[in-house]
Simulated scan of single mutants.
Amino acid sequence: MSQEEAKWESIINDLKNGNNEVLRIFFEKHSRYCISRLTKENQCTKADAEDIFVESIMNLREKLVAGTVDKVMNERSYLYKTCYNMFLVRYRNQKKVNSLSDEITRFYYDSEYQSEETKAMTNELMKITMSAWEHLTEKCRDILHFFYVDKLRMEEISHLMELSNADVAKSTKSRCYKKFMEKAMELKEAESIPSKK
Rank of each mutant, 00 (worst) to 15 (best):
L144A: 00
F146H: 04
M86D: 13
R37F: 01
E134D: 07
I35Y: 10
A169H: 07
L187M: 08
D102G: 00
T68N: 09
V97F: 04
R32P: 06
A184E: 05
T39L: 08
C83N: 13
N42Q: 09
E103Y: 07
N93G: 12
Y80K: 05
E156W: 10
R24C: 12
N17K: 02
I25W: 09
N17W: 01
I193N: 00
Y33V: 08
E182F: 05
S2T: 15
Y113P: 00
K178N: 14
K179E: 03
A184W: 02
L79D: 08
T129Q: 01
K170Y: 12
S31Q: 13
C34K: 03
M154E: 01
L23T: 08
S101Y: 04
E138I: 04
E9S: 15
S174G: 07
L160Y: 14
I128P: 00
L144F: 02
F53L: 08
E138A: 02
E156F: 10
K178Q: 12
K151C: 05
K183G: 00
R32L: 11
V72R: 02
R24F: 15
T105G: 03
Y109H: 08
L64R: 06
I12A: 13
Q43D: 13
K170R: 15
E103N: 08
M161N: 06
C44L: 14
Y78M: 10
A120D: 03
T129K: 00
D48Q: 06
M73V: 09
T137H: 01
E116W: 08
A6G: 08
E112G: 03
L38G: 12
I12D: 11
V65S: 02
N98C: 06
I143V: 09
P194Y: 06
E182G: 01
E156V: 07
S101V: 03
I52P: 05
A169F: 07
I52G: 04
L15S: 10
V97H: 04
A132L: 05
M121C: 05
E124K: 03
N42F: 11
M1W: 13
E117R: 13
S131K: 06
D70W: 09
V168D: 13
S111G: 06
H159K: 09
K179M: 03
E5D: 14
I11Y: 08
W8K: 15
L23H: 11
N85F: 15
A6M: 11
Y84N: 13
Q114F: 00
V97Y: 05
V168Y: 11
F180L: 07
N98H: 09
V97K: 07
C176W: 02
N74I: 02
G18D: 03
A169L: 06
N59H: 08
E186I: 05
D51L: 01
L88S: 13
K46G: 06
E75Y: 14
C44S: 14
A49F: 00
H145F: 12
A120S: 07
E28Q: 15
T129N: 01
M161S: 06
L64G: 06
D150Y: 09
S111N: 07
E41Y: 15
K119A: 11
N165G: 03
E103A: 05
